[in-house]
Design a protein around this nucleic acid. Structure first.
Length: 755
DNA sequence: CAGTGGAGGCTTTTT
DNA sequence: GCCTCCACTG
């Protein structure tokens, strides 16, 4: 038996209501994952349900791994037959298993975003749609949106009421035609095709309905219509469906997550038991109250009162700095202080931001200060050019019909097959209604009509024949060859390394990436008995880079976007860029719905913090080349003043500051309830003075500010990283180039000149 | 065909 | 400010 007495009453109710539909409205840190894992353990151990009959669906691989490992901590030996998977993985399996029933090759590959983009660009060219007037991404997202709403081309046509929609419809049709010809699917298809398969094939539907007696969905607020409808279909026989989510943490509506699912759930399952988890185990009272004060301004929301038994904790600290460099320096000083004085580990700390671009300065200052950091998901491994090239070769070996992959590598490494030849080849393929690979085959076997062949001149003909020969050699690699070995052969046959060395400055890094890729392939073969290339490719298509964060390491500071931070927690959280235009983002300002999502995003950020929450804003931020004056984020106005304090000596408005300090925003009065020493200490480490490039106080001071490049008589070139007032003088910190280190000087004494 | 340079663009990105 | 796309030239 699994004891359930460690759960609170509500959690226990959610775990023990095993029959019928259940909706769990779970606030942040209220033990959401705990409920699902205990529920599964309870079903298996206490209710004797066969794990084979249970499925739990998540959104990320990370979440499903976490769930698996937490369940195996509770009970033994049931992970194997349990289905814990992401929606897409789950559907991919169903689709592959039953592919032939819908006229799809079970070797189908899954295309990524950039493949989709290049297909849609071709489609648009064919339809003579100007990509400057209608960006391909717009069409693509319209199609993706349609698929998420379960509109296939026929369904879309019925709704194509205006000019834009009929244009999208034309593109959608051709796009689908190309996908079908290539025997590939996009990520949305995994859901759409499974839905229509289940809907139209009763025997397949019955098989799965019989099997899945119990179905659970994590992060239900993030489901789109397609996912929800699939879940409904699957659970309609046993009706044991349990969904867990938090509408206040819905931050992916721009990816078609649909909050209507929660409302519909209550309507569709009128007998659903609705359980709210409102005790928070994660954050201090102060953090929770601050977060509530942000979210409670949303009008379109179901009211929910969170509470915690945790102590009041530290006040929320707002730091105000002049610009983004000073912001980074101030925050990283505090990070170092937390590590050295408060015995925090770097892995306890995360710095969060709305847009990726904000990580740049943080990175620079981390490097200057020697702080190791992990930048979550910036340049993605599988999106690197060299990896994409090799993947394209692998995909082509698995499925030679895959035109997109073929076109990607037909001239990589260079085989002197240019744009003209490729477009001639595509047009021939188009006329014959064949894939490019089959067209090449026909050409080599001299089976194509001479008037078509004439479109290619003799030179191009020889080159593409050579390419076909190469492809044949790759296709002849025996099927049971280890994937890493296949990669090695591809590299040999195409002389890919020589290509890299010849074409790129930083080829060493690219070679390292390839080695890493081979290692991944090797690991995969080791852990999967069937050495299937298709499964390997599927895994990669459905894996994202966030999955690779190593949470066990204590060595690294985390830099992460607010979106990516959902589902994570850290003892210490910094959120930077609390400015109008940043959070809330400027693009969300003309829509109430989007503004509410920004608020939820901010709420998600706040509720990641367990012990201490720091917010930061700047007066000016160098962003996109400009240097903008910033108004504090409207969300700061919602914070209870008694819970916050401002760690800044530069926030008091002066005569030349007035124009960029928002009139509405007032610095909190100094009677904060914060422990005095906390404030003082933090201020010591951030005693940066306000300096203004326009102000003429001292001619020398005017010359030097953070970010300036200077030359020192002894140490040479360097970058000013910090300026702070020291008596009547200024202490400046300079990071020198050529590994000469970081040194501090008195401005009046230092033999420096500005470059 | 390949390599360069200027113009324009720009949130977030679970799978 | 940086990256991507394309148009032009060798």
């Amino acid at each position: 038996m699994i004891p359930l007495d460690s759960l609170n009453i509500k959690q226990r109710e959610a775990v023990e209501t095993t029959k019928g539909p259940v909706l769990v409205n779970a606030g942040p840190g209220s033990g959401k994952t705990r409920v699902i894992t205990y529920r599964i353990a309870n079903l298996v151990t206490n209710c004797s349900i066969n794990p084979y009959n249970i499925v739990a669906l998540t959104f990320t691989n990370k979440a499903s791994r976490e769930m698996s490992s937490r369940i195996s901590n509770l009970t033994t030996d049931l992970r194997n037959s349990l289905t814990i998977s992401t929606f897409h993985h789950f559907c991919s399996r169903i689709l592959r298993y039953n592919a032939t029933s819908i006229n799809l090759d079970s070797n189908f590959s899954i295309i990524d975003d950039s493949d989709r983009l290049s297909i849609i660009k071709n489609v648009m060219t064919e339809l003579k749609i100007d990509p400057k007037i209608t960006p391909p991404r717009v069409i693509l997202s319209a199609i993706s949106n349609a698929k998420s709403l379960l509109l296939n081309t026929d369904g879309f046509k019925a709704n194509a009421s205006d000019n834009f929609k009929s244009m999208v419809y034309e593109c959608y049709q051709l796009y689908e035609k190309q996908l079908h010809l290539s025997q590939v699917v996009d990520l949305d298809d995994l859901l759409l095709k499974v839905f229509f398969m289940l809907k139209s094939n009763n025997s397949i539907l019955k098989t799965y309905q019989n099997r899945f007696e119990h179905l659970m969905i994590d992060e239900f607020q993030d489901t789109n219509i397609a996912q929800y409808e699939i879940a409904k279909l699957l659970s309609n026989q046993h009706r044991n469906i349990c969904v867990v989510g938090d509408p206040d943490q819905s931050i992916y509506s721009w990816r078609n997550a649909d909050i209507r699912n929660i409302l519909d759930f209550k309507k569709y399952y009128s007998d659903a038991k609705i359980i709210s988890l409102s005790e928070n185990y994660r954050s201090s009272q102060t953090i929770l109250t601050a977060a509530q004060s942000i979210i409670s301004s949303n009008k379109n929301r179901i009211h929910k009162d969170l509470w915690t038994q945790n102590s009041k904790g530290h006040p929320v600290c707002l730091t105000e700095t002049f610009n983004e460099r000073e912001e980074a320096t101030t925050i990283l000083n505090e990070v170092q202080r937390l590590v050295s004085e408060e015995k925090m580990k770097l892995s306890d700390i995360a710095i969060m931001y709305r847009v990726n671009a904000l990580s740049r300065v943080l990175e620079e200052v981390c490097i200057q200060n020697g702080i190791p950091y992990i930048l979550v998901g910036s340049i993605k491994f599988y999106q690197r050019q060299e990896i994409k090239d090799l993947l394209a070769y692998l995909k082509l070996i698995a499925n030679p019909k895959d035109d997109t992959s073929l076109i990607r590598i037909i001239n990589t490494p260079s085989r002197k097959i240019g744009k003209k030849t490729i477009s001639d080849l595509s047009s021939i393929a188009n006329v014959l209604n064949l894939t490019i690979f089959d067209t090449l085959k026909q050409i080599v076997e001299e089976k194509i009509p001479p008037e078509l062949q004439k479109r290619l001149n003799r030179g191009s003909l020889e080159k593409i024949k050579g390419f076909y020969k190469l492809l044949k050699q790759l296709l002849d690699i025996p099927e049971n060859t280890a994937i890493s070995e296949i990669i090695t052969r591809i590299i040999e046959k195409t002389q890919y390394e020589e290509y890299l060395k010849h074409h790129f400055d930083h080829f060493e890094e690219r070679l390292e990436n390839i080695t890493e890729f081979k290692n991944i392939a090797w690991d995969f073969s080791k852990n999967n008995e069937e050495n299937s290339l298709i499964l390997f490719l599927e895994r990669i298509s459905l894996v994202n880079d966030t999955d690779n964060i190593d949470e066990t390491s204590s060595e690294y500071l985390t830099l992460i976007t607010l979106h990516q931070a959902k589902g994570l927690e850290y003892p210490i959280v910094f959120i930077i860029g609390m400015e109008e235009g940043m959070i809330p983002h400027i693009k969300s300002m003309d829509s109430d719905a989007e503004m509410e999502e920004e608020r939820r995003l901010c709420y998600v950020g706040f509720t990641r913090a367990k012990q201490k929450l720091y917010l930061s804003r700047t007066f000016r931020r160098g962003y996109r080349g400009g240097y903008e004056r910033n108004i504090p984020s409207r969300f700061l106005n919602d914070l209870p003043k008694e819970l916050t304090f401002v760690a800044s000596e530069i926030s008091e408005p002066t005569e030349y500051e007035d124009d960029w300090v928002n009139q509405e925003y007032q610095s909190p009065p100094s009677k904060y309830s914060s422990p005095k020493n906390t404030k003082t200490r933090f201020n010591q480490s951030s005693k940066s003075i306000r300096y203004d490039i326009n102000k003429d106080v001292n001619p020398k001071e005017n010359k030097i500010s953070i970010g300036d490049h200077i030359t020192h008589a002894t140490f040479g070139k360097g970058l000013v990283t910090h300026v702070r007032k020291l008596g009547n003088d200024y202490e400046i910190t300079i990071a020198f180039t050529d590994n000469k280190g970081i040194k501090k000087f008195l401005l009046s004494m230092a033999p420096i000149t500005k470059d």
